Computed example of a mutant assay.
Amino acid sequence: MVYEQIAWEELTRWKRKLRKNQSMTSRFTKKWQNKFNGMVPEKFHTVVTTSIKNMVQATIYGTEVTSKHKPLQALTLKEQEEQAKALIEKYKKTAAIEGAGTGFGGILLGMADFPLLLSIKMKFLHDMASVYGFDVRDYRERLFLLLIFQLTFSSDDKKQMMLNRLENWEIERLELPAEDEYVSHIDWKEFQLSYRDYIDIPKMLQLIPGFGAIVGATVNYHFLDLLGETAMNGYRMRVLKELN
């Protein structure tokens, strides 16, 4: 149980970090970002909103689910996390290459980066679920992927609420309605605003031809790194509860 103890300590530190009060830098960035949003072309926001809505619907209805997402069985937590870390490195490189390619082309290709990056992120989360032994053919497990996504890319003031939901997921999942009923109550605007606000500033820099290639590669790499950390700790939380 040595590895499990190390994982538990890392999980505790991660949760403590998320629960810290909003920093002065975060508050300043948010204020600047609110002004910045008014300068962003409406077409840019439309692409983000449409991409996110399509991504959420595809995730809930399982259009991304294939036979290769069957859960892996009989792995220890250490073995699961070795595979998880390899996945994170693989997808960080994939996202960086995609970001560099679209960032090099300026505003048109820069906008195309949104649906492509979302697709990479969700494919990554599906693969992570399989590594930890969870079956994404169950729509509730696909909702857990969306919760990980939201926690990763939500503002500081919403992270604690998302983290609380993650910690109490085993209770929440038992109370979930049928798929169609759940979809009908999604607040699309709120969902896309949280994500858009998180990525606006770095992604707008990606629209600058040439320079955008450097930004795109760096930002996408960073986003997958953050998503990987959240996914690992989210599943780590559930596996450790089962072991206790």
Results as ranks from 00 to 15, higher is better:
residue 80 Q to Y: 05
residue 143 L to R: 13
residue 97 I to N: 03
residue 109 L to M: 11
residue 67 S to K: 15
residue 72 L to I: 15
residue 145 L to V: 02
residue 123 K to G: 12
residue 86 A to W: 02
residue 131 V to S: 00
residue 87 L to I: 00
residue 74 A to G: 10
residue 103 G to I: 03
residue 130 S to Q: 08
residue 154 S to W: 07
residue 104 F to R: 01
residue 92 K to P: 01
residue 151 L to Y: 08
residue 107 I to S: 05
residue 102 T to S: 04
residue 106 G to D: 01
residue 106 G to T: 05
residue 142 R to I: 12
residue 141 E to T: 05
residue 101 G to Y: 06
residue 78 K to V: 05
residue 123 K to Y: 01
residue 123 K to W: 01
residue 85 K to Q: 15
residue 87 L to P: 07
residue 141 E to H: 14
residue 67 S to H: 04
residue 144 F to C: 09
residue 148 I to C: 03
residue 89 E to Q: 04
residue 99 G to F: 00
residue 124 F to G: 04
residue 115 P to T: 09
residue 157 D to I: 13
residue 77 L to A: 13
residue 126 H to P: 00
residue 117 L to H: 10
residue 96 A to Q: 03
residue 86 A to T: 03
residue 79 E to I: 09
residue 67 S to C: 04
residue 76 T to A: 07
residue 101 G to W: 07
residue 65 V to R: 04
residue 133 G to K: 08
residue 79 E to V: 10
residue 87 L to S: 06
residue 94 T to S: 06
residue 68 K to G: 03
residue 76 T to N: 07
residue 96 A to D: 05
residue 94 T to M: 11
residue 116 L to A: 13
residue 111 M to R: 00
residue 133 G to I: 02
residue 139 Y to I: 14
residue 105 G to A: 14
residue 111 M to K: 07
residue 105 G to T: 10
residue 75 L to P: 04
residue 134 F to L: 06
residue 141 E to Y: 11
residue 99 G to Y: 04
residue 99 G to L: 01
